[in-house]
Amino acid sequence: MSHSRLQIDGVVFDVRRAAWFPDERVLAVADLHLGYAWAHRLSGQLMPITPANDTLGRLQELQRDYEPREIVVLGDIVHRAMALAVLEAEMRELFNALSPRSQLVFLAGNHDRDLQNVLDQWLLPISLAASREVGTHLLVHGDAAVSSAGARGLRILMGHEHPAISISDGVTTSEKCPCFLVSESVIVLPAFSRWAAGTNIRAYPFMSELARQTTFQCAVAIVGDKLLRVRV
């Protein structure tokens, strides 16, 4: 029995920070924050540029395993929309690698302001959307409010919060682990980007109205290479 996937109410949570909808064959990830280091360099901060930008590699592995009909990225695709050659190269590489086998849907997040302009300049055939319906779920970035009429009885799947939860052995060790948050009305995905430090939900309030109004039943924590369901 593998501990790397967990199914709750028809949604499969993968330890590799993705959600899978088996009936609709849709894979969802959130908060890629591509170009994080370059965004900071542009503003004069000498962030380290690491060799392994493994975002694409990890997405390709997920695509191979699930063979999704559609991959939805729930916003904050980039950290900052910049007309930079290096960012263009990354996005183009991602698009070319994934689009042959799955339809790609990109939702706009709060960091993606002006991204559409830049994508158009690069002649990349990507149109940012505000939301995406997948079966009984509505996929959004999560920064904007969603009225109940807008939700139409659908469960919301969102990113934006970069949730994490601290797990302790009570004596000597406490670790902050990225996690999924689950409730009847809202599911929050952890940030896919390695640059996200993760906000410990036990210590800090949520940023968005959506999450603040929700009482989560449990968190599915990513503990090393395994998933662990914990009470929130």
Partner: peptide
């Protein structure tokens, strides 16, 4: 190892 240990510690409780 930390992750393994934490996981097994809590696993038995749920």
């Amino acid at each position: 190892e930390t992750m393994e240990r934490l996981f097994h510690l809590w696993w038995s409780r749920i």
